[in-house]
Design a protein around this nucleic acid. Structure first.
Lengths: 215, 215
DNA sequence: TCTGTATGAATGAAGG
DNA sequence: CCTTCATTCATACAGA
């Protein structure tokens, strides 16, 4: 067996799924969401009951983790979008492929600031990178020698994806306008993240250098 | 070819999604999965601490579900240059240390394709990494003035990971943080991806067994 | 089998 | 906007 067609997708740029599969996926996500929710509840209940019985014993991360200090990661030098932020960014990106205006950037930044420290530059860079990357896909493969880009939309799309590059497709030519993924099964994605993440959501996690995980 | 169309009625309709959309889904699922995992762990920890540890009390979903569903999901494979390809690459690298132009990349890719599956991105990445690595070697000795640049190969080789952990600028050396995977705040999507991602078109994650979750 | 190392890939940021 | 750099993550592979 050759290392052949594995990689990021030795195939087309589009995946096809039936309604059934779609449904299954949707269900799965929902399930996860529900589980998370319930687990959180359980955890809360348990925590409350034992008043911190074995705090810092063998499980330094047991409680602080969920309740407050989830962020205590080795400090990072560069901004790393949090899931919630990324989600929003992606969403916005879909809407306007073009570069967001200056004001728009500010706006977005404010929005994202709700989920964590972020600067306009971060947002700007993100969009720039995102876009650049999307474009890169197009220059993937020049299939036939000398052929001009005469392919039909679909065709070209396939061709491009054929070489399986990164994981970012070109949303510009997205044939289907179905933007509603499974954004939120039942409970909000953000909701969940909010629980797990930072409740306050105003704490620059990468600046929390010495934050005692244990309080 | 009609894309994005689906007839809910017949159930035969297919949905087409782009890689990006696919990516979104995967990410979301990944996030949920990871969260669930972590929550389960916490729950276990808490439960264990309590005498009456509620093992399998009213929590049918606590671990069976996750351990089975979450962990087994896909894995990604990465391109591995074949000896022949590597040889060519090295050879080219010697000629022009600089990053090959885009056209050059294409050219090289075609060449290497003779020896096995490969994409332009692979080539691109290879050169990028190669170059970065080279530079890295030379910068092994910096801080100390004087001292001739006696970056012996061995030395430079050693520096591979040396810079990692404790080089954190403002962070204290936190040994425990090492395995603490709960980087929640900015829990890398990449990380998450790795856990659930489906390897291209090999394993359709939506075909995972439909666990009975809870009915 | 488990652990450590080499290296492909992802991505934020800077330069031009 | 496009290209390049730097850093980091994750995995294939080798050694114990």
């Amino acid at each position: 067996m050759e290392e052949g067609r594995f990689q990021n997708g030795g195939g087309l740029g589009v995946k096809v799924m039936t309604d059934e599969q779609m449904e299954m996926l949707r269900k799965q996500i929902s399930v996860y969401a529900t589980i998370c929710e319930q687990l959180v509840e359980m955890h809360k209940a348990l925590s409350a009951q034992q008043d911190f019985a074995g705090m810092g014993l063998g499980n330094p991360y047991c409680d602080p983790l969920l309740s407050s200090a989830v962020h205590k990661i080795g400090s990072r030098q560069r901004w790393t979008p949090k899931p919630a932020q990324l989600q929003i960014l992606e969403q916005i990106f879909e809407q306007c492929n073009a570069t967001p205006g200056r004001q728009k950037i500010k706006d977005i930044t404010r929005e994202l600031a709700q989920h964590g420290q972020i600067s306009e530059t971060n947002v700007y860079n993100w969009f720039q990178n995102r876009r650049a990357r999307s474009k890169r896909k197009q220059s993937a493969v020049v299939p036939n020698n000398g052929e001009s880009e005469m392919e039909t939309d679909i065709e070209s799309l396939k061709e491009k994806k054929t070489r399986a590059e990164d994981s970012q497709p070109d949303e510009n030519t997205t044939p289907m306008a179905d933007h509603m993924y499974f954004n939120s099964p039942d409970i909000g994605f953000d909701q969940l993240m909010g629980k797990i993440e930072s409740p306050g959501s105003c704490i620059p996690y990468w600046q929390m250098e010495q934050y005692d995980l244990f309080g």
